Simulated assay, not measured.
Amino acid sequence: MAASSYFLLAAFFAIVISRAIASDPSPLQDFCVADMHSPVKVNGFVCKDPMAVNPDDFFKAANLDKPRDTMHSKVGSVVTLISALQLPGLNTLGISLARIDYAPLGQNPPHTHPRATEILTVLEGTLYVGFVTSNPNNTLFAKVLNKGDVFVFPQGLIHFQFNPDYHKPAVAIAALSSQNPGAITIANAVFGSKPPISDDVLAKAFQVQKGTIDWLQAQFWENNQN
């Protein structure tokens, strides 16, 4: 099967499953295209006038079949998200999609999606992936995935993906059960918050010296979202 056909099949498969486990409220009408220009603030987006809706509201030329440049990412990955912010027609439909490119030895570092379960399909290469359960057990569920394999990360749990290959990149596509899943990268949130969390608090939480915390807070914590 051609690479482009495989990509489209995987994307369709991921979207269908994600819709089946959607966690956003069910829509009450055929569609509610997001009106990005409305001054009204709601939990989601205000609906555009249906008479002004056109096919382009449900379309985005995202070129998700094209590789992303991971060479300039400090963590070695680039996440290209298609949510209601990029595709207004997704508003109220309870799904979003992401392409994730990994450099050799690149990773999508530990993070959570507060509003979505994620289902990941490997399109190319190999990934070591896993998630950690909540307190008190903090059990790690991890697996090595190859091309065509699928793995699920439950909503809100810390998870990661890592490309263990020294020479070959990897690509995955993820479907998420929310139009706006959110992403909290653990290192960024803990050590890169603005203003910073008190080093007294973090030193005690991590059982290290304050100097270690100060050094970590001085680093540049990169956002790998494209």
Rank of each mutant, 00 (worst) to 15 (best):
S18N: 05
N146L: 10
P55F: 06
P67Y: 05
L85N: 11
C32N: 04
G89L: 10
G125R: 05
L81E: 09
P55V: 07
P25Y: 06
V122S: 06
S77E: 03
P55S: 08
Q107S: 14
L87Q: 03
R19Q: 14
V46R: 02
A20T: 04
L105C: 08
P27N: 09
L90R: 11
S73C: 09
Q29M: 08
P27F: 12
L127D: 01
Q107N: 08
P109N: 07
S26C: 08
L90C: 12
P25I: 04
M51N: 15
D57A: 03
I21Y: 14
I95V: 15
G94S: 05
L28S: 13
D49V: 02
R115H: 12
E124F: 09
R115F: 06
F13G: 06
E118T: 11
S18Y: 03
L85F: 07
A20D: 09
S134P: 01
P55T: 04
H111P: 00
G106T: 03
P88W: 10
L140P: 00
D24Y: 10
S26H: 13
G76E: 05
P25H: 07
S38F: 06
A52G: 03
G44D: 04
R99Q: 13
P50A: 03
V16R: 14
N63R: 15
G76R: 00
F45K: 10
G89I: 09
L81S: 15
K48Y: 12
K74A: 11
F131M: 11
V33Q: 12
F13L: 09
V16H: 11
L145E: 11
N108S: 12
L9T: 12
D30N: 07
V46H: 06
S77K: 00
K60S: 05
G76I: 04
H37Q: 11
Q86M: 11
S18F: 04
F45W: 10
A10S: 15
D101I: 00
S18P: 03
V78I: 14
K74E: 10
L123P: 00
T139I: 15
N135C: 03
A11E: 00
H111K: 04
G130A: 10
V42C: 03
P25K: 07
P104K: 01
G130S: 09
A84G: 11
L9E: 13
